[in-house]
């Protein structure tokens, strides 16, 4: 049974798709993570809101990097987000925009 992951899609004012994830992303559901981001990033721009993620493993990080390669990725992971440290460690900021809070 895949780990618990909730996905929430919204369109931002500037037309970008914002995909909000809550729960955990690990090998069991990383496909879904990827899928959701892939769909949302069809326009070439996507905002991944990871504020409510409680777990993110290397597979998930890989997906982020992947998305960042193909399109403009903005990742929302505030200081209170528990996976922010991970993102810092992997230096995602180098390829994507890491935001503290979600844009409107």
């Amino acid at each position: 049974m895949p780990s618990d992951l909730r996905v929430e899609n919204r369109t931002l004012a500037d037309g970008r798709n914002r995909v909000g994830f809550s729960g955990e992303v690990d090998a069991t559901n990383v496909a879904r993570f990827r899928e959701s981001l892939a769909q949302a990033s069809s326009s070439g721009r996507v905002v991944a809101d990871l504020s409510n993620l409680t777990y993110l493993d290397s597979a998930g990080v890989e997906v982020l990097f992947d998305v960042a390669r193909r399109c403009a990725l903005a990742v929302v992971a505030g200081p209170e987000c528990v996976v922010r440290h991970l993102l810092d460690v992997v230096a995602l900021g180098a390829v994507a925009t890491v935001l503290d809070e979600a844009p409107a």
């Binding site: 777990y55 493993d57 290397s58 440290h85 991970l86």
Partner: peptide
């Protein structure tokens, strides 16, 4: 702390994976 806990969890998770 919860933040450290997550870090440790992720690291351990990696090793286990």
């Amino acid at each position: 702390s919860p933040r450290q806990m997550t870090d440790i969890l992720i690291a351990t998770g990696e090793a286990v994976s």
